[in-house]
């Protein structure tokens, strides 16, 4: 086993076990913190793949903004932060079955990929990955359209949030 594989297996174990804790722990703040651990694991995966930009963006957006908003909302809304109800619904077996089916389908597809055994490409030292990413995001024959569509979606969500939160006088 290569060092990369060992790191991957450890990180994957971290992500899966933290994700499991998110849904099983009864304390809401602990659940949010386990979610942070899982998101941090994903950042480590990006780091292993030499994607430095995605590492920091993952940390800024998911850990620094989204998860902290979860914690903020939980602290604002509940005084008693322990959930006492049953943790499983009656149709849990159906969800488990669907989950297993989706997982086996994905695993089947992945195993049949030709280049599944390839390791991450080595980035040459002088390559400006960040500049290439930026240029790709605004060049019309690459990702300009999806980028703009996503921007407009976010803008619409922003305006919608302001509209919902505004108090009419």
């Amino acid at each position: 086993m290569t060092p990369d594989q060992i790191i991957f297996i450890l990180t994957a174990a971290l992500i899966i076990s933290s994700a499991l804790m998110v849904v099983t722990t009864r304390n809401l703040i602990h659940a949010a913190l386990w979610l942070v651990a899982a998101l941090f694991g994903v950042a480590i995966l990006y780091a292993v793949l030499n994607a430095g930009f995605f590492v920091v963006v993952q940390v800024v957006v998911y850990i620094g903004a989204i998860a902290i908003l979860f914690i903020f909302a939980v602290m604002l809304t509940r005084r008693e932060m322990r959930d006492r109800g049953p943790q499983l619904r009656k149709n849990w077996w159906l969800a488990a079955l669907l989950g297993m089916l989706a997982f086996s389908g994905l695993a089947f597809l992945l195993i049949n990929q030709a280049d599944i055994n390839r390791s991450a490409a080595v980035i040459p030292a002088g390559l400006d990955t960040l500049g290439a990413l930026g240029a790709a995001l605004v060049s019309p024959d690459l990702y300009l359209l999806p980028f703009e569509v996503a921007s407009i979606l976010l803008l619409a969500a922003l305006i919608g949030a302001v509209y919902l939160a505004a108090t009419r006088k």
């Binding site: 430095g52 930009f53 590492v55 920091v56 963006v57 800024v60 850990i63 620094g64 400006d128 960040l130």
Partner: peptide, 17 residues
């Protein structure tokens, strides 16, 4: 690192925790 300023932003955003 080539994302130095973003690194600062990301670490600063963890500091809230």
């Amino acid at each position: 690192i080539n994302v130095g300023v973003l690194y600062i932003m990301s670490v600063a955003s963890i500091a809230v925790y």
